[in-house]
């Protein structure tokens, strides 16, 4: 089955057509090698980094921003967001602290992306 994408590798935004033939993934419409690589990735396993915020208990701020520390499969985004929606952290938090380990079952952790210090007494 042929799939169509817009390449995001540069501002050109080439319209790509990607399909599989005899076990090989083929790309047309690209004007450079980066476009081909992007097309193949999007066709075989599109991935995204998911970012959000979680509530903080006892912190200087009420929310702490988080992300998945590696891209997760696009099909897993809803599951990852649901897990983040139920999560919270306790201050102090530093960048990189794990909030939810192995959130997608494939080794991606949800980690803090900002520092939140203890609320001053």
């Amino acid at each position: 089955m042929k799939k169509e994408f817009i390449c995001i590798s540069c501002p050109m935004g080439c319209p790509l057509t990607v399909w599989e033939e005899n076990g090989e993934v083929l790309v047309s419409g690209n004007t450079c090698p980066r476009g081909k690589a992007y097309g193949i990735q999007e066709f075989t396993c599109p991935q995204r980094v998911v970012t959000s915020s979680v509530p903080v208990r006892g912190g200087e701020q009420s929310m702490c921003s988080v992300k998945t520390d590696k891209p997760v499969a696009k099909t897993e985004i809803a599951k990852v967001l649901a897990a983040i929606y139920g999560a919270s952290v306790k201050a102090p938090v530093k960048v990189g602290d794990i909030v939810i380990p192995n959130v997608d079952g494939n080794g991606a952790n949800v980690v803090a992306t900002r520092r939140v210090l203890d609320r001053k007494k």
């Binding site: 980094v49 970012t51 959000s52 915020s53 921003s65 988080v66 992300k67 960048v95 992306t113 900002r114 520092r115």
Partner: peptide, 24 residues
């Protein structure tokens, strides 16, 4: 601080960071 999405720093740090990470 509020730009929690990623995509910052590709040119400056050579890696993709979120806004708060870049600021930190």
């Amino acid at each position: 601080q509020q730009c929690i999405h990623n995509g910052f720093g590709l040119h400056y740090f050579g890696q993709e960071l979120t806004g708060p990470e870049y600021a930190q």
